[in-house]
Structures are given as structure tokens and as C-alpha cells.
Design a binder for these strands. Structure first.
Length: 345
DNA sequence: CCGTAATGGACAG
DNA sequence: TGTCCCTTACGGT
């Protein structure tokens, strides 16, 4: 997925597109019919993120507020279309979903086989509401835009109490202004204390959303490399100063990711690998934008090429950017862990 | 056409 | 630790 930075971006996008508007809520796929009925016609007050959890607040006149909770899981994604009155990235979520991103540069998609419902129209921008594409769990339709959700791990309507219960199980979030613990200092202290009192490896704990919310496999691998910490070290054996540096680095890296839509962890001096392709994925001949590791990027020509964005993630077998030792790969708790055995020891 | 990977997580035992 | 779920796009046949 979509690590935490993506979800924070999504919250901002949804708020920008829909906040203050009553929305038509549907489940074209049918699996969310009951939930959609609860929300249909309610006003989207705003969206927020905590780690990888997305919460959209709906107010229906006279009724108690409702929260739509969405978790994208490994391959959930939102795609957007609209009249262009709001500036949005057109697809956010699973990396394979590139169609939406191409639409960013492409002219507005023509209506599909005349079946599309005409949009309400806004005076300035006429637009056609596109047919749902694929298995759309939820469609949010407003005056100026439509948002389609596919493939989520979780999609449900919650009461305020139920939303609070979900949040209670989440660790501090480096992207939230107060870290989700009242202040960034308190959030860092909570993280350091929690990791430091467990024998579970620091590599596993970083993937535990109760320890720190929003970190996924990429940030896990990259932040440990940047800190020079061995992922297999038990948390209690990692010096507190290292854990503090890891937290502070997550704040920087993840907020940068939320701002740009990309994860880039390499420092400029470590990026020039001569344009070497990602040798592992056998896509060397496909060109720089078709490698296995792809990002949801804004169309920024100055963006760091994907194959130079990481130190170790998906680079097993390739020489470490810093010391040249081959990057290691090991399956840990069902997920691939990448690290440099020399730099991280 | 089919198998598989993918930045995740819940649940059983 | 293993199993299952969610969906898409890609490479290989």
C-alpha cells in the first residue's frame, strides 16, 4: 500500500474535493450497499488520516455523525475524475494502478458507450461522470468530482465511539502534527519506550501499527538503513539514541512523502549509480519509468528516478550504495526485509 | 489464458 | 507461524 504518507495525501485530496458538500454514496460493486445507504446524501465534513487509516466524517442533518473508515491494504486505490476545478492527483493507492495517473496528462476521458450519467454541471466546467471501472466498492459523487475506491482491506461505517476504538489501537503517527500523542516529543517518547521494552526485532516492531502508525515495508527498510541499525536486533538492544534518530527521521521522510507523493530516502550523493537498472526485476530494457518499483508521483520532471530513490528496498543482490556490499533479503514475519549487512550492524 | 507479486492485516492455533 | 482475503497489471505460455 500505500504507506501512511499516501493516506494523509488522500485525506487532503478528499477534503479538498468534497468538504461541505452532500454526496451521493454508492457501491457499484454491491459489497458496500448497506454502508453506502447509511451515508448517501450526507455531507462530507472532512477527511483525516491516522497512519494507514483513512477516516471521512459525514454529517446528516439531525443524525449522529458517521465515519467512513477505509484501509487500502496492499492494493486498494482511489481514482478521481471531475471538472478540473480542484487540483488532484488522479489516482492514489496501489502502485500498479497507473491508468489514473496517465489520465492526469491525457485529455478528459470521453463518456463510455453513452451510458455515463451527465454531471450536474458547474457553469464553467462540464464533465461526464465516468462509468465505474473495475470492482468499485464505494463511489463518492459530488458536484465537481467523483472518487472511486477499489480493493480496500477495510471499508465500513463507524460511530464516533467505534472510530475512537480504532484509534486507541494505533501507535503515534509521525505525519500528524502532534504525532497523535499530543506533541511530537510525547509521540517520540512513546515510540522509544515501546520499542525498547520488547525483545521483538526492531525490524518487526516498525511494521507494527501499534508501535508506530503509517510505516510500511519501504519506510521500515529505508529508515533502518539510514540509521545504520540492524533490523534483526531485538528492540530492547537498540540504543535509545538510535530509536530517537529513527523516529526523527521518520518524521522527516514521511512528511516529505506526504508532501510530494513519493518516497525518496537517498541523499543526493548516493544517487548516482550510473543509471543502473533495477537488475532484479528483469526490466532493464524497459526504460526508467517502467521498472518494477514504481511510485505514485506527481508529474514532476525533476523527480528522482525511481531506481535511485531507495537505499535497500527491492535492491537485494545489488551493491549497497554506500559500501558496495550486496544488499540482503530475508523473509521476516511474512514480509520481505531488505538491508545491508555491513552498514547495519 | 494463467500465475504471480504488491508499499497490509485479521485470524486461527 | 500459517492461511486467507481484497484487486490489478504484468510477464510468460
Amino acid at each position: 500500500m500505500p504507506e501512511g504518507h499516501t493516506v494523509h495525501r488522500l485525506a487532503r485530496t478528499l477534503t479538498g474535493l468534497f468538504a461541505g458538500e452532500p454526496l451521493a454514496v454508492r457501491s457499484p460493486q454491491g459489497r458496500f450497499d448497506a454502508g453506502a445507504a447509511l451515508l448517501d446524501g450526507a455531507t462530507l465534513v472532512g477527511a483525516e488520516a491516522w497512519g494507514k487509516q483513512l477516516f471521512c466524517r459525514f454529517d446528516a442533518r439531525g443524525a449522529e455523525e458517521r465515519w467512513l473508515r477505509v484501509h487500502l491494504g496492499l492494493y486498494g486505490a482511489w481514482t478521481f475524475a471531475g471538472d478540473g476545478s480542484a487540483d488532484v492527483v488522479h489516482a492514489i493507492g496501489a502502485p500498479r494502478r497507473r491508468i489514473g495517473e496517465r489520465e492526469t496528462a491525457a485529455p478528459p476521458r470521453p463518456p463510455v458507450s453513452g451510458a455515463a450519467v451527465p454531471g450536474p454541471g458547474t457553469g464553467s466546467g462540464e464533465w461526464e461522470v465516468p462509468e465505474p471501472r473495475g470492482a468499485v466498492r464505494v463511489r463518492l459523487l459530488g458536484e465537481h468530482a467523483v472518487a472511486d475506491l477499489t480493493g480496500p482491506t477495510a471499508c465500513e461505517v463507524l460511530t464516533p465511539a467505534e472510530k475512537a476504538a480504532v484509534e486507541d489501537r494505533l501507535g503515534p503517527d509521525p505525519i500528524r502534527p502532534d504525532g497523535g500523542r499530543g506533541s511530537l516529543q510525547a509521540a517520540r517518547a512513546a515510540f522509544v519506550a515501546r520499542v525498547g521494552r520488547s525483545r521483538v526485532t526492531v525490524g518487526q516492531q516498525l511494521m507494527d501499527q501499534a508501535v508506530v502508525a503509517g510505516v510500511g515495508n519501504i519506510y521500515r527498510a529505508e529508515v533502518l538503513f539510514r540509521a545504520g541499525v540492524d533490523p534483526l536486533l531485538p528492540g530492547r538492544d537498540v540504543p535509545a539514541e538510535d530509536l530517537e534518530r529513527i523516529w526523527d527521521d521518520l518524521v522527516v521522510l514521511m512528511r516529505d512523502g506526504a508532501a510530494t507523493g513519493r518516497i525518496v530516502t537517498t541523499r543526493p550523493e548516493h544517487r548516482d549509480d550510473g543509471g543502473a537498472p533495477d537488475a532484479r526485476d528483469g526490466t532493464a530494457s524497459l526504460g526508467p519509468d517502467r521498472r518494477r518499483t514504481r511510485q505514485n508521483t506527481d508529474d514532476d520532471p525533476d523527480a528522482v528516478p525511481a531506481h535511485e530513490a531507495f537505499y535497500v528496498y527491492h535492491r537485494d543482490g545489488l551493491p549497497c550504495r554506500v559500501c558496495g556490499t550486496p544488499v540482503l533479503l530475508k523473509e521476516l514475519a511474512g514480509r520481505n526485509l531488505f538491508w545491508c549487512g555491513a552498514c547495519q550492524s
